[in-house]
Design a protein around this nucleic acid. Structure first.
Length: 114
DNA sequence: GATGTGACTTTGT
DNA sequence: CACAAAGCCACAT
């Protein structure tokens, strides 16, 4: 059952990402207290994809690219939502330098629920 | 229980 | 830019 806790921790962390900002799978894993488990972030989002409760669209690959092939339905949907939130997406990619989420200490502590 | 897969990352060619 | 290798681990078969 520990796996469920990890998944929930990841989803809670993702839900803390503010609109207009993005984060990478690895970054979420780190913030969730699970360094090196970037893949777990992906599989967690896949199993939960409600769209409304968890802002999965704000999670990108380490290089800022959307985690789906350009042109795929998912990639298009994600791109559209991000643009609606004010994030500039070019060539299936987002400039992390401009939109990367950089949470302050208080936010991190809150996400980890210490 | 072994094997393969995957919404990943990093380093090195 | 691409590809490979190694690390990672829940899940399905």
């Amino acid at each position: 059952m520990a796996e469920i806790d990890k998944t929930r921790q990841i989803l809670e962390t993702v839900m803390v990402i503010p609109a207009g900002k993005v984060a990478t799978y690895g970054q979420i894993a780190d913030l969730a207290g699970l360094p090196g488990r970037a893949r777990l972030v992906g599989s967690s989002l896949r199993s939960e994809f409600d769209g409304a409760e968890v802002p999965w669209q704000r999670v990108l690959r380490a290089d800022g690219k959307i985690a789906f092939p350009s042109g795929s339905p998912k990639a298009e949907e994600q791109r559209q939502i991000l643009i609606a939130e004010g994030v500039c997406v070019k060539n299936n990619r987002v400039s992390l330098a401009d939109y990367r989420w950089q949470p302050d200490m208080a936010t991190i502590l809150s996400a980890l629920k210490y």
